[in-house]
Write a protein that binds this DNA or RNA. Structure first.
Lengths: 345, 345
DNA sequence: TGTTAGCACTCACTTTTAACGAGTGCTAAT
DNA sequence: ATTAGCACTCGTTAAAAGTGAGTGCTAACA
């Protein structure tokens, strides 16, 4: 176990390093007001902390920096859930002053807010669509056999796609088919929609003996596509990466920025579900090579107990965990409140 | 005027520098197979070219690099419109092998293709929506007074927005209003839609004495919004910037990447209309500080004589203009063909 | 026994110096 | 007009020397 003094020193080292990005020496620490013992004592303690693997030195004659294990310990034991300042709390409330009606916009807005709040890059994984239920389907024939299909879920999420049919679909046929489909399919979860839709079209065809084979094929393709599509990922504050001293080197910066641009990779990284309310992964804990010098703070957002997506914050390992965690917690609250407003059934 | 030999030397310098990113010396040039004269002669000619402002030296004992004026001259007079190789032409054709029905996707796809083809970052300014005509309007009531409004243009472009009304709109009222609006407003250019829509709703209200004030207000807000919204900008190959030796320095890279993320700034930059088929701006000609070390190749795309948007290629001043221009020309052709297919009325 | 002062040692970082060489401009010979 | 020759420039690289922040260890101290 660590003594109180060791805890104090470890915390001081991490705090200092987070603030300055410079290795912290024993003399610097000894000058702090909350440190009553000498630099030599600190050196002794540091040697012990290093032996435990909590801190390390970049080279012989430098100060100490936290190791990954050190950050881990700091995050697990040394963070004090500093409550947000009153003015910040006020600011946070006013952020959502005017409601955002569409979830898409709301999410984008939230990503931007969080990055503004923390000065880190943010990722927001949008809700999975499979779970949502169909509210309305609309077929709108265009010229030359092109048809726009619009799908609205109960939460107001809108998807659309344009198909090309071999022959024009008449407005009447479209409206008849649509009316029928809406009657029977409303409330179907999107995950089942494809199967049920095909079935329904088949039935419709046999009853009306209309030529809807092509339409059904086209719809099938569309919905298959739909089904495989992953939730959107929204990014905020990409440029914040540039401000971090650890990413002044293009070689360090590049893999991170490249990863961030890849929806699929990000999705794979973010999608695993979390048990805890808040998950923090540090450096190699991310299991992604591009993020080996980064830390990620993640939180699930949910409405009425249903987990919908992920809110994440990405920065250097030397990120301000305290501020990050607090910001994400508070924003999460406000965000979920807004989201609930939009998701009333 | 420049002598043939000077032209040869200038072209050789630019070509070489584009390829190697290293200042070109007289000795290097004298070794080229198409150069029959000595390095001393080349030095004399170089001195003249430098006096004319076409080339410059980074420092006394370095070779020469093209000045902005030099690039300008090269682009205006020395580029040979090298026709694309047969295999590339074939590849280009197969790129659009399976049609993309939606313009949005088509544009995104094109941006990606162009960046793959050239290894530069690409920007595509989407078509202005104002000019498009309304094909169909759909009001879909959700729970709690929320209404999704979906707008489809004749080209199959879909916009949607969710509004919050003070009281629920009944399905019947919605469908009556919608039918009426579609009858009277189909074919209205989006630029006039707002005014005409308001008028129409007012008339509808007086005829049916229904409570649609709120709806009309909400629609007004939506459409105003819509109207002010700028065309989307699609990006391709952002990561290509990392490969350019001139952008290995974060200080150089940052402003460019930051600019690219700003829709508004990019819009202002790209939107001015072009007289020519292809416009090339070099360094300070861009009139944007962030792009002072970049060159941009732009081309308007249009269908049936109507200019719709811009296709652009962005790279270092030392970019391969020849390849860039050729790629953009050829892709432009294929892109417009696809676009025309989708825009049949 | 825990703490601290003192001191030799390490090593990144900075500055200095020197050597190198690619490239130039000029001059004189062809 | 062209070119060979040569002195000169200057960025680049490498080696050398100096600086200083920081450490580990030891011995003295409370």
């Amino acid at each position: 176990m660590l003594t109180d003094r060791q805890l104090l020193i470890l915390r001081a080292i991490v705090d200092d390093y987070i603030k300055t990005a410079q290795p912290v020496g024993s003399r610097t620490l000894s000058k702090r007001s909350d440190v009553t013992f000498s630099s030599a004592t600190i050196r002794n303690e540091m040697a012990d902390l290093e032996e435990m693997g909590l801190i390390e030195k970049p080279h012989t004659s430098a100060g100490r920096i936290p190791s990954e294990l050190g950050y881990r310990f700091y995050v697990d034991h040394l963070i004090r859930p500093e409550s947000i300042s009153p003015q910040e709390a006020k600011a946070l409330k006013s952020l959502f002053a005017h409601s955002v009606n569409e979830n898409d916009r709301l999410i984008r807005h939230t990503a931007d807010l969080l990055s503004e709040l923390t000065h880190y890059t943010t990722l927001v994984l949008g809700p999975k669509e499979e779970g949502q239920r169909l509210h309305h389907l609309e077929l709108i024939p265009l010229a030359e056999g092109r048809v726009v299909i619009v799908l609205v879920t109960e939460t107001g999420h809108v998807e659309h796609k344009t198909l090309q049919l071999a022959e024009a679909l008449s407005r009447e046929a479209a409206s008849r088919l649509m009316e029928r489909l809406n009657q029977t399919l409303r409330g179907t979860p999107l995950s089942q929609l494809r199967l049920r839709l095909l079935e329904e079209i088949r039935r419709f065809r046999s009853e009306h003996s209309e030529q809807t084979t092509l339409l059904s094929k086209a719809l099938d393709i569309v919905l298959t596509d739909q089904h495989e599509e992953r939730p959107l990922i929204y990014l905020g504050g990409k440029a914040n990466m540039f401000d971090q001293p650890e990413f002044q080197d293009v070689a360090k910066l590049r893999p991170v920025l490249e990863l961030i641009e890849q929806q699929e990779a990000l999705f794979d990284f973010l999608s695993p579900s979390l048990d805890n309310q808040i998950l923090i992964t540090i450096g190699s804990e991310n299991n992604v090579d591009a993020l080996k010098d980064c830390s990620v703070i993640r939180a699930h957002y949910s409405v009425d107990g249903v987990s919908l997506g992920t809110l994440a914050l990405i920065g250097p390992k030397r990120m301000d965990y305290n501020r990050g965690i607090n910001s994400i917690i508070h924003l999460l609250q406000a965000f979920q409140t807004e989201l609930r407003k939009n998701n009333l059934d």
